[in-house]
């Protein structure tokens, strides 16, 4: 046997083939990535500032004389509409532009794993932003005796809602190599799904479409389901809506990544 035909020797580093381990590896990297630049701190500060301003000035938090956080949570979907696409726009668009997408997808990381890791990192970051608003919760408890169970449920609802926005933003980012495009597409898609059930949208369809169509469109609205959840009604339908929304958009993002390989 010639030297060229030596049998293959097992490589020295011991490799594991743990599916979630690879998701975890990318999740670690993505999470650390938020904090290597000042962007994360700017983002968190801005989010807290805007959330505070909206709650106290537009939501009449103090004048209402009620010990609850409803004015605070009511603004969340609208805050997410701008903040989350800004956070998620770079997730894939940037990798595509700099060519690292090829590096990433030729590691033993599949499209689904990559999407999942990026989604989780971004969603956890949103969770951190929410966590930093807890002083407001403490304040309400100092000022009165709110229904803390309801507030906890609202926090979870808000975080679930954020998941929907992250999934949409991630899909928008998967569509483009330009971050600005990803941002605009993300905002437009999110807005369409947000206001689907409000009179603004239903009146547009009511004159000519059947009741079923209008109901169906209203049923697709994030706002409707978010309101249900923040009222403390953790229904399967409302929570399920966000889960389905996330799964659908993550699958679409993963498919986009797979299909992009053909273009």
């Amino acid at each position: 046997m010639s030297a060229a035909l030596r049998p293959y020797r097992r490589p020295a580093p011991v490799l594991t083939a743990f599916w979630w381990g690879r998701v975890g590896a990318l999740l670690d990297k993505e999470w650390a990535g938020y904090f290597t630049t000042p962007l994360a701190y700017v983002f968190l500060t801005l989010f807290l500032l805007v959330a505070g301003v909206l709650t106290f000035f537009m939501g009449n938090f103090l004048e209402r004389g009620q010990a609850d956080l409803l004015p605070f949570f009511n603004f969340h979907p609208w805050l997410y509409l701008v903040f989350i696409p800004a956070l998620s726009m770079r997730l894939i668009a940037e990798e595509r532009k700099s060519g690292t997408l090829e590096l990433l997808l030729t590691l033993p990381i599949g499209a689904v794993q990559a999407i999942l890791a990026k989604f989780l990192a971004c969603w956890l970051f949103c969770g951190l932003a929410l966590l930093l608003t807890v002083p407001l919760w403490i304040t309400v408890n100092y000022l009165g005796s709110p229904d803390n169970g309801l507030i906890l449920a609202s926090y979870l609802a808000s975080w679930l809602c954020a998941a929907g926005f992250v999934a949409i933003g991630l899909f928008a980012s998967a569509l483009s190599r330009n971050q600005v495009t990803a941002f605009v597409v993300g905002v437009v898609l999110s807005f369409a799904l947000l206001v689907g059930g409000t009179p603004l949208m239903t009146q547009l369809f009511a004159p000519w479409a059947g009741v079923f169509v209008v109901e169906a469109i209203a049923g697709l609205s994030m706002l409707t389901h978010f309101d249900t959840l923040t009222k403390g009604l953790i229904t399967l339908k409302a929570a399920g809506y966000f889960v389905v929304l996330v799964v659908v958009f993550l699958c679409m993002a993963a498919e986009t990544l797979k299909a992009e390989k053909n273009a």
């Binding site: 580093p13 011991v14 490799l15 594991t16 083939a17 743990f18 381990g21 690879r22 975890g24 590896a25 990318l26 670690d28 990297k29 650390a32 990535g33 290597t36 630049t37 700099s98 060519g99 690292t100 090829e102 590096l103 030729t106 590691l107 033993p108 990381i109």
Partner: peptide, 26 residues
């Protein structure tokens, strides 16, 4: 890959750590 794309805002050490983890090196 062509042009050797890398994650510019990581240090070399962090980058190689990430690749090790992603590659499943124990």
């Amino acid at each position: 890959p062509e042009g050797a794309p890398l994650y510019g805002d990581m240090t070399v050490y962090e980058f190689l750590q990430f690749i090790c983890a992603a590659r499943g090196v124990l």
